[in-house]
Design a protein around this nucleic acid. Structure first.
Lengths: 200, 200
DNA sequence: TAGCACATGTAACTCGTTACATGATTTG
DNA sequence: CAAATCATGTAACGAGTTACATGTGCTA
């Protein structure tokens, strides 16, 4: 039977290096969590399924806690399955964005009362962008060569990061436009035309 | 009890005008489907729940088929609930993007074999952008005033559309960079430097 | 006359979240 | 010594997809 998308996420992480279920769960918060996340309650059963399909194996390493600490690594078969999946075109995923859904109904509320909700979103994008930029600086100084070699894990991580950077910047610019539109439509007295601080 | 996100999507559509469950399902494919979608098997039970909570009501209109045709509309209470929800900051949704997850593992495959998967994605973004641009032209020619008035449904629809346009353009630019990176890393003989056609 | 658009519902299943459960080691 | 981190698992629930089910009116 074929792995789920989460299974491929785990295979992708294990292809870089062996990890415990706990370490995999952490990676599924960040950096992989930026585009695919899961909680530990999903990870452990999925690891068991991958092992049953002989795509990963584990060995017991010593560690704390009441249970064994299991370190997983990908098998040759798992590595092949992963590479095959990675080059298969992704079928279009259903888009779901609760923020945009709120925007779609924003006309039902007073524009002044709608502003904070957009501003909150904007500041979250600003924070995320700062996070990405710091990771980028780290990456560039750390492995200058690796990030330009498509056969290296660092290249793939850098590629996803670049997409994140670009996405956050465009999202911030959109928020600025939206804030102007909401504020600019006011009767009169207050028209604080913002010139997009933080977007450059 | 509070509506689900789908419930708010339905309220948002009914706030524009009364519709049948079938019409709501269609809207949840496009244009609302661009950021929130659902199938009819989800819509009908949710409408029943909204009605039980007195946020919508229905009346029977005549139509074909073995069952009654029900036209739903939003109640005053439903309208208030919707406006309240729309201005409440959205809590950050977990991001899930299978394409980016594939990109993260692309280093495990041969760069040449990875190209078609990126090119497929690119052409899907191109198609989506063309779709959005046609809707934009339609909107601008149709209701020039409405799209600039934040109290009008057309403004909200236009706002979500602008986000889509910006997103698709940045996604295409990223695909172009990715294709260059994968192709440019080839041993020698074939280096077809593309100059981003379609992105302007 | 065959297929499609209209129109509404239920059932089975999968995926993901939240909560329950346990316990050792390190740090303040 | 209290709290956080490391470490692994199960159970109950909710949201979403796919398949099952029915039947009319219009068009090619």
């Amino acid at each position: 039977v074929e792995p789920t998308t989460l299974g491929y996420a785990l295979l992708g992480l294990l292809a870089c290096r062996p990890r415990t279920g706990y370490e995999l769960t952490q990676a599924l918060r960040a950096p992989v969590g930026y585009f695919w996340n899961a909680s530990h309650s999903q990870v452990y059963p999925e690891l068991a399924r991958l092992e049953a399909a002989q795509l990963v194996r584990h060995r017991i390493i010593d560690g704390p806690g009441p249970r064994d600490t299991k370190q997983y690594s990908v098998t040759a078969s798992g590595r092949r399955t992963l590479a095959e999946w990675a080059v298969t075109p992704a079928d279009p995923q259903p888009q779901r964005d609760e923020f945009l859904l709120k925007v779609y109904s924003i006309w039902t509320a007073d524009p002044q009362r709608a502003l904070p909700m957009i501003e909150t979103q904007r500041s979250e994008h600003i924070a995320r962008l700062a996070e990405y930029e710091s990771i980028e600086a780290h990456m560039i100084s750390g492995n200058e060569d690796e990030i330009h070699n498509p056969r290296r894990p660092a290249f793939a991580a850098y590629a996803t990061l670049r997409r994140g950077l670009s996405f956050e910047r465009h999202a911030i610019a959109w928020c600025d436009w939206m804030i102007d539109s909401l504020a600019g439509a006011q009767p009169s007295h207050t028209k604080p035309k913002r010139q997009s601080p933080g977007t450059r």
